[in-house]
């Protein structure tokens, strides 16, 4: 079974490298700032001992005041997993850096988040709608769609 690492274990390690990057850390996940997301993700991928080389999933949640994007990372080498979250407080045009450069699997998943939630990802090579058709107005999975 894959060991689910708790956020607090990793938080102290990350705080040393990127001070101020981690907003809060709990037993199940790690909440980071949007600006430092890319460097923390690169650190998680490349550090020996962490080696998160497989991105299981990216999903997004619409809490009424912010969007939260959840990254589920797994390390095949060490057989442990971690959940990293970021928040976007901008409702009109939320943007986040894209992690496609680190994990290719993020390509379609970020397109799906863009399509259904409206969160743009900077640096994504092909950010366009994937499940809905080009020309569809709106982002359906937002709470204020209907």
């Amino acid at each position: 079974m894959t060991v689910a690492l708790s956020g607090s274990e990793i938080a102290s390690q990350i705080e040393k490298q990127f001070p101020g990057g981690v907003v809060e850390s709990g037993a199940d996940s790690l909440l980071v700032k949007g600006e430092s997301l890319l460097e923390i993700a690169a650190y998680l991928k490349t550090t020996a001992g962490l080696d998160f080389d497989y991105l299981t999933a990216i999903t997004a949640v619409d809490y009424y005041d912010c969007f939260e994007v959840v990254y589920q990372l797994t390390s095949i080498k060490h057989n442990h997993s971690l959940v990293v979250k970021t928040r976007c407080y901008n409702r009109d045009n939320p943007t986040l850096p894209s992690v496609v450069g680190l994990w290719r699997g993020a390509d379609f998943q970020e397109r799906e988040i863009y399509d259904l939630m409206g969160i743009s990802f900077e640096g994504h090579p092909n950010l366009k709608r994937i499940v809905l058709w080009d020309g569809f107005q709106g982002h359906p999975l937002r709470k204020n769609f209907l």
Binding site: R129, D134, G135, F136
Partner: peptide
């Protein structure tokens, strides 16, 4: 994509 979206 644009053609498909227009058709839909």
């Amino acid at each position: 994509d644009r053609k498909e979206g227009k058709a839909i």
